[in-house]
Structure formats: C-alpha cells, structure tokens
C-alpha cells in the first residue's frame, strides 16, 4: 500500500516536472510542449476512429507475433533441450542468430512482404522467439536430478516425464520468457510500424512527425508507454496464477 502511494507520488512528480519545465523556458516548448497539451492532444486523437483502428492494429500485430514466438520457442526449446545431441549441435548456431538485432532484418522483411502487417510481424516473431527459446532451454536443463531419478524409478514414460516433470519445471522459465518476449515484441511492433509503415500506432507517430504535430506525437508515445505497463502487469498476474506452487510466488503470497 505504501509502495503504491509512493509510486503514484513519483508519477505525479514526473508529470509536474513535464508540465513546468517547458513553461520555464529551460527547453524549447516547440519540441517539448507542457504535459497538459500532450494530454489534450491525446484526448483529441482518442475521439478519432483512426486512433482506435491503429491501436487495434498494433495490438493485433503484437499479440499474433507474441503467440507465434511463444509457441515456436516453447516447442523448439522442449525438443532441443531434451535431446543432448541436438542441444550441442544447435548451441553455436543459436548463439550466432540470437544477437542479430531484428531491426537489421527490416530490409529483408520489406523485400518479402512490402508494407503489409506481415513485414512487422516477422520482426516481432524473430526477436521474441529467442527470448522464449533461451528461457525454455534453461528451464529444461534445470530439472532436478532427484526428481528425474524418482520419475525413472517409477518407470514414467517419456511422454509423462515431458508433461509431468520437465514442463512444470520449465514453466517458471517459460513465463519469464513470455514476459521478456512481450516487452520486446511491443518494441518491435512499434519500430516496424514506424520505419516500415505497416498499420498501427507507430505509423501514426511517423505521420505526426512529418506533419509537425508535436503534442499529438507525444500523446501517442504516452499510449505506447502505457501499453508496455499493461503488458508487463498482465504478464506478472499470469505468472502468479500459473506458478502458485513456485517458491518465488509462495513467498510473495505469504507476505
């Protein structure tokens, strides 16, 4: 409760700063209008169908990309992690592909899909996939040796071991991967829309920039920030629900 109040106070202080600094002339208010103006501009755009259409497009690209990346990353991670030979064979390739910034693939995405939603989607999937894969691989490697011996001594089949031992052990890692992937996916969604011009909030920001509409531009930036907060909060909520048994959540709920 106290933390929540302090958090709110911090936000209020920041908004106050944002409001007063342009008035004092410390910065040029052509490039940083007071917060009240950003809010007013945002209110204006919220009244347009165009804004809601763009928000829907962004959420759709983000959600589709995240779902695809999570499914693919989890499946690949479970299979690769469970087969030592496969793990050794793929480790160096993964280490090579993983650090490639997804934005470096923009030219390729444009060549393949033009300015369609798929161009951004491929960037989102590429960047989010590695987040999930790396976490799932770490999770599969973390199966407790005693638990593994227990499963073997009770003659569990491979399928049972995968579903009842490896997957629950991996789940906390997969959820962390999901949370990381959700943030990265949002960044790449906005980036793709901004640079490639696929439909969504990012493209609206680009349009606002070219037409010199500075206050609406900030309004849209605030929306993307809020989206990020909502995404992170929902991921944490999900984490608490599916990991009731996990020590990290146990302690949190006991407090």
């Amino acid at each position: 409760m106290r933390n929540a109040l302090l958090g709110l106070a911090g936000v209020a202080a920041f908004l106050l700063l944002l409001e007063t600094v342009p008035h004092t002339g410390l910065v040029d208010d052509r490039y940083l209008p007071p917060f009240s103006e950003m809010a007013r501009a945002l209110g204006d755009s919220a009244g347009t169908a165009e804004f809601w259409q763009a928000l829907g497009d962004t959420l759709r690209t983000w959600g589709t990309g995240l779902a695809l990346a999570f499914a693919a990353g989890t499946a690949a991670g479970m299979v690769i992690g469970s087969v030592p030979a496969l793990r050794d064979a793929t480790a160096s390739t993964i280490e090579f592909l993983r650090p490639i910034p997804a934005v470096a693939l923009i030219p390729l995405a444009v060549l393949l899909y033009g300015t369609g939603m798929e161009a951004t989607l491929i960037l989102v999937v590429y960047s989010a996939f590695w987040q999930v894969l790396m976490q799932v691989l770490a999770g599969v490697a973390d199966v407790d040796p005693v638990a593994r011996d227990t499963a073997r001594s009770f003659r569990f089949r491979h399928r049972t071991r995968a579903l009842r031992l490896v997957w629950p052990t991996t789940l906390p890692y997969a959820v962390t991967g999901f949370r990381l992937a959700a943030s990265v996916a949002l960044i790449l969604t906005i980036t793709g829309e901004l640079i490639i011009g696929t439909p969504g909030l990012g493209r609206l920001i680009a349009v606002a920039q070219t037409s010199g509409a500075v206050a609406p531009l900030y309004g849209l930036v605030i929306v993307t920030g809020l989206l990020g907060v909502v995404v992170n909060l929902s991921a944490r909520l999900l984490e608490r629900r599916v990991l009731r048994w996990h020590p990290s959540v146990r302690q949190e709920t006991a407090r």
Binding site: P145, A147, D149, T150, R152, S153, R155, R164, P168, W245
Partner: peptide, 19 residues
C-alpha cells in the same frame, strides 16, 4: 528401473513434485 520396485530418496523435498 525394474517393475515392482519403489525407491524412497533421502531428499524428500526434491523427490516430491511441488506442483
């Protein structure tokens, strides 16, 4: 691991599935 055999390990906390 043969049929008809069960093992109780020393480390119960790790042998039982917490989920």
């Amino acid at each position: 691991p043969p049929e008809g055999m069960a093992v109780v390990f020393q480390d119960y906390a790790r042998s039982l599935f917490p989920w």
